[in-house]
C-alpha cells in the first residue's frame, strides 16, 4: 500500500505540489492524470525518493519512507520510465538483468541472463534481442525492454511514467494490454502517470486527477465518465475552454 499525506514541493519560485493526499491499496492499479506541468512526475519522483518533499509524508506498506533502508525500499519497486531510460552501453539482457547483477545477493551471469530472457519473452520479445544494444531497437521494443527490466526482480510495486508516450496507437494498445496483464499476474500494486486516456481505460482500477499541484478528482474507473467535475470533464473532452487555463 502507498499512502501520501499532505505532500508539498516547490522549486525556487514554482510551487508544484500544494498538499497532495492519496492512497493506493495493495494490488490496486492507480492512474494519475492531468495536464503537462501539473506535478504528476514530481509526485512520482517524491515517492521514489528522487526528489525530497518540502513537507508531507509518504508511507509504503505502513512505513515512513524516510525511515526505511534506502536499498531495501528501492528493491521493492520496479519502474518503467517515459522513454524507457535503457543504458546505452549495455546489451538488452544486461539492461533487464541489471538489478539482479548488483548488490550483495547478486546472481551469476548465467542465472541473471536466463531470467532476463524469460522476462523478455514475457513482454513478447524473442531471445535474439537479448544480445542487441538499445539503439538497435524500435521505440516500442525499447518500451518492452523497459517493462521487462521493471518486472525482472518481481517487485511488489511498479511505477509507469507515461508508458505510451511516443508510440503509435497500435503499439500503445499492446503496451497497455501488457501492463494490465503483468500487473494482474504478479498481483502488484501499480501507479501509472499518463495523459493518454486509452491507457487510463485499459490500466486503471482507480483514477486521480491532479491540477495545479492538488488532487482535483479521484474515484474508480467506472465513475470517470459520469463525473460532473468541471476540471475532469474539460480534460476528458479536450476542451480549450473551462477552468483549466490552456497555456497558449
Amino acid at each position: 500500500m502507498i499512502m501520501v499525506q499532505n505532500l508539498h514541493k516547490r522549486f525556487t519560485e514554482n510551487t508544484v505540489l500544494r498538499g497532495v493526499n492519496m492512497q493506493i491499496e495493495k494490488g490496486e492499479s492507480m492512474v494519475i492524470i492531468g495536464g503537462s506541468g501539473t506535478g504528476k512526475s514530481v509526485l512520482l519522483k517524491c515517492i521514489l525518493g528522487l526528489e525530497k518533499p518540502d513537507n508531507g509524508k509518504i508511507f509504503i506498506n505502513g512505513q515512513d519512507t524516510t525511515k526505511l533502508d534506502r536499498n531495501l525500499f528501492l528493491s521493492s519497486f520496479g519502474m518503467l520510465f517515459q522513454n524507457a531510460a535503457l543504458f546505452d552501453s549495455l546489451t538488452v539482457w544486461k539492461n533487464v538483468a541489471f538489478r539482479l547483477l548488483q548488490g550483495s545477493n547478486k546472481m551469476s551471469e548465467k542465472q541473471a541472463k536466463d531470467i532476463a530472457v524469460e522476462k523478455l519473452r514475457r513482454v513478447g520479445l524473442s531471445p535474439d534481442v537479448a544480445e542487441k544494444y538499445p539503439a538497435e531497437l524500435s521505440g516500442g521494443m525499447q518500451k518492452r525492454v523497459g517493462l521487462a527490466r521493471a518486472i525482472a526482480a518481481n517487485p511488489g510495486i511498479i511505477f509507469f511514467d507515461e508508458p505510451t508516450t511516443g508510440l503509435d496507437p497500435i503499439m500503445s494498445g499492446v503496451i497497455n494490454e501488457l501492463i494490465r496483464e503483468i500487473v494482474v499476474e504478479m498481483g502488484a500494486t501499480a501507479m501509472t502517470i499518463t495523459h493518454d486516456m486509452s491507457s487510463v481505460r485499459a490500466i486503471a482500477d482507480k483514477v486521480i486527477m491532479l491540477h495545479d499541484g492538488l488532487v482535483q478528482w479521484s474515484g474508480v474507473i467506472g465513475d470517470l465518465e459520469k463525473s460532473q467535475n468541471p476540471y475532469l470533464n474539460q480534460f476528458l473532452n479536450g476542451n480549450a475552454e473551462g477552468p483549466i487555463e490552456a497555456v497558449r
Binding site: 520510465f81 543504458f87 541489471f98 548488483q102 548488490g103
Partner: peptide, 13 residues
C-alpha cells in the same frame, strides 16, 4: 537528460 541516472537509482545503484 534521458533519465538513465534516475533509472540507476531506482535499480538500487
Amino acid at each position: 537528460v534521458t533519465e538513465q541516472i534516475d533509472a540507476l537509482v531506482t535499480l538500487s545503484t
